[in-house]
Design a protein around this nucleic acid. Structure first.
Length: 289
DNA sequence: TTGTGTTTTATTGCCTCC
DNA sequence: GGAGGCAATAAAACACAA
């Protein structure tokens, strides 16, 4: 399956290269010039309108090196055909067409590969390689996006955690205050109803906070975490901590650990409050479930 | 001009599926 | 067993700062 190593296949590569250039010159991108085809292809000479294309693309890169030789006379052409095969970049037009094709479908069935190769004057193998590399780039980009999403989720969850932590400290102080002010025995009965009210009020707040935490947690783990929905092909690439990642016990512990007034595991200073710590440095992945 | 970092094209080896 | 996919990697092409 694998082709030969570049530079070592003299005769065949010269032949293929000749064919490639011949194809590009004689039937360049025919399908592009059909009505309704890409407007970026302005005519059969478009491959030669390098300056126009350069200006239009605002690029200083020369993607046309392979074809520049066509304007240089027979000597250069001869030299070109007898060079050992070099790696050549595709033209802007070719890349644009491949990109459009990739947007439609990022997998390449044989018929489409053949058709693209014919349209672009390339070898089917080159089309396959281009799609392979393009999928790899796309996957990398998706991973970066997923990382960003996770990071922002983490940041907002951490902010919630910090707020709840502060609030919990406040409530604990309040409880301590009330406990310290416990009235003498005679007065207890009379005061019972009032202090019970206070305590149940605190409990209610605590419960609602616990709900907030649970909901924040499910926001991260359950919601439409990116599944490469663009085409639905690569949902398996994404990091998906599903329920199986947390046993029932661990789930329970997660909830219990957040129950006030013994709510939050004591974190050392800097464990969660260092704004300069990197995403990986934070304790999210090893959060004490 | 040259050194260096990045991007693109291509190869290799392994894996899965039919 | 062959075809095709992917990860890892090489190497050419290119951009850009010094």
């Amino acid at each position: 399956m694998a082709g030969s190593t570049g530079g070592s296949n003299s005769n065949l590569s010269v032949l293929l290269q000749s064919q490639r250039v011949a194809c590009a010159a004689s039937q360049p991108l025919e399908s592009f010039f059909l009505p309704g085809s890409s407007p970026s292809f302005l005519g059969s000479r478009s491959m030669m309108s390098f300056e126009d294309v350069h200006q239009a693309n605002g690029s200083t890169r020369s993607f046309f090196r392979a074809f520049d030789h066509e304007d240089n006379g027979d000597d250069d052409l001869d030299e070109y055909f007898h060079q050992p095969e070099k790696k050549r970049r595709l033209t802007v037009d070719q890349v644009q067409f491949l990109e459009k094709s990739f947007e439609l479908e990022n997998k390449l069935e044989p018929e489409r590969k053949t058709q693209l190769a014919k349209d672009l004057g390339l070898q089917p193998r080159q089309i396959a390689i281009w799609f392979q590399n393009r999928r790899a780039r796309w996957k990398t980009k998706q991973l970066e996006k997923d990382y960003d999403v996770l990071q922002s989720s983490y940041n907002s969850l951490k902010a919630d955690y910090d707020n709840l932590h502060k609030e919990n400290e406040k409530l604990k102080a309040e409880v301590n205050l009330l406990t310290d002010k416990e009235p003498p025995k005679k007065a207890v009965l009379a005061a019972d109803s009032a202090s019970e009210g206070e305590v149940s009020k605190i409990s209610a707040v605590a419960c609602s906070k616990q709900d907030e935490i649970s909901s924040a947690k499910s926001d991260i783990f359950d919601s439409d975490s990116p599944h490469y929905a663009a085409d639905g092909v690569h949902s398996s690439y994404v990091f998906e901590p599903d329920q199986s990642d947390l046993s029932q016990d661990e789930e329970d512990n997660f909830s219990k650990s957040l129950l006030p007034p013994y709510v939050f595991p004591k974190l050392e200073d800097g464990d969660y409050s260092d704004p300069h710590a990197s995403f990986e440095d934070h304790a999210f992945w090893s959060w004490p479930y």
